[in-house]
Design a protein around this nucleic acid. Sequence first.
RNA 1: GGUGGGAUGGCCGAGCGGUUUAAGGCAGCGGUCUUGAAAACCGCCAGGGCGCAAGUCCCUCGCAGGUUCGAAUCCUGCUCCCACCGCCA
Length: 421
Amino acid sequence: MLDIKLIRENPEAAQKGIALKGSNIDIGEIIGIDTSRRANLTRADEIKKERNDLSREIGRRLKANQDAAGLMERVRVIGEEIKSLDSRISAAETALHERLLMLPNLPHESVPHGRDESDNVVIAERGTKPAFDFEPKPHWEIAERLGIIDFTRGTKLTGSNFMVYAGAGARLQRALINFMLDMHTSQHGFREIYPPFLVNRETLTGTGQLPKFEDDAYRIESDDLFLIPTAEVPVTNLHRGEIIPGQELPIYYAAFTPCFRREAGSYGKENRGITRIHQFDKVEMVKIVRPEDSYAELETLRSAAEDVLRALELHYRVVEICAGDLGFSNAKQYDLEVWAPGMGRYLEVSSCSNTEDFQARRAGIRFRRTPASKPEFAHTLNGSGLALPRTMIAVLETCQQADGTVRIPGALRTIFGRDIL
RNA sequence: GGUGGGAUGGCCGAGCGGUUUAAGGCAGCGGUCUUGAAAACCGCCAGGGCGCAAGUCCCUCGCAGGUUCGAAUCCUGCUCCCACCGCCA
């Protein structure tokens, strides 16, 4: 959520910023609502003071057995005006809040301008692109031959774009999860979290999925709960409504969870195999930091995610996301895209973002620099470390051999227990 | 799911329709004293809003309504917590 004061003081910049993000919400209307809200508020405050004063005087007179009928009548009249002003104020507050919740975060000044993903900027390519002396196969063919992914039965159990890992496939997935979590907790200083996979509306609003993106989430109607689309949601909200003592920052959390996304209207051959499925696993990193540190923290967050790809010896590139393609809550975002040689394309396996105080404001995540300081909004960041299915794709396709078997990357061999799949 | 009890500032806790304009204590912060510390004493110490600012200003006693001239206090609904019962991996 953007700060209404910031919008008030610099409406042109706010309008320009949200336009860069591709939103055309009218800032002028928001300012209009805010202006009349404050006018009513000032008036209401004045007459509330009068009511408070008079009520006190009534009490005094009644105690002294003096007449207070005139004062009571006056207070009654004031009470009616207060009631009407209060209802106008609360209507304005509701309208204002609704609109503010729909406004995207502003892009950081360093973010390249651009409309959509075609304007994103590749800023680095890392690792060696694997060479093959045979035609590399896509992962669905490799997996089918090895019997490690069962698409047909996934569809039978649930529906299209659900799948089943079986045997060594399930084991490889588990090895990857452990490998990633172990790396982040033991080498990068993250504290492991195991959150609920179902969350309520407030939680989803705190990180920015609601109200705008309700249709993207699976909802449990009987209890009005939602399946999490990413661990970022429950983990960032861990400190919702809290004031964190400054010495506890920065906070680093890492969590493994399944993620559930309806992905309405995104089927097609681009998404064959397990590139886009409704339920997938992910290890996620979340940071809560001091505002002045958040951009440096974004770099180390990205580097922590890159460490996983490096350790798995996969070729990938780093993409800086342009303003128009930035996520709703993000001020700056890097994506890591891993090379899938069988598919012949790069796949997004991680998205590392600084939301600055956008989520902190929605969720009320504050901190105190010293025990005597006023609370300030913290900055929150999140990054995948990494998304499992696409990591699995990259491993299968990169490490495939001419005979159809798959060589397990060195870093995984101990945890997986075998060299060859 | 059922029955009962509860929800006041970081924590404990008073309050039971009008000098509560939320007492008091603990913790915390600053200071006096001290070689240093402890003790003692003094001061500060919830969050938010409005405002350039000052502010004997406004709001918030779980949340939302209501009664009243006036609500932390009375009424209604809801949420959450605790205990017991039921069910259950």
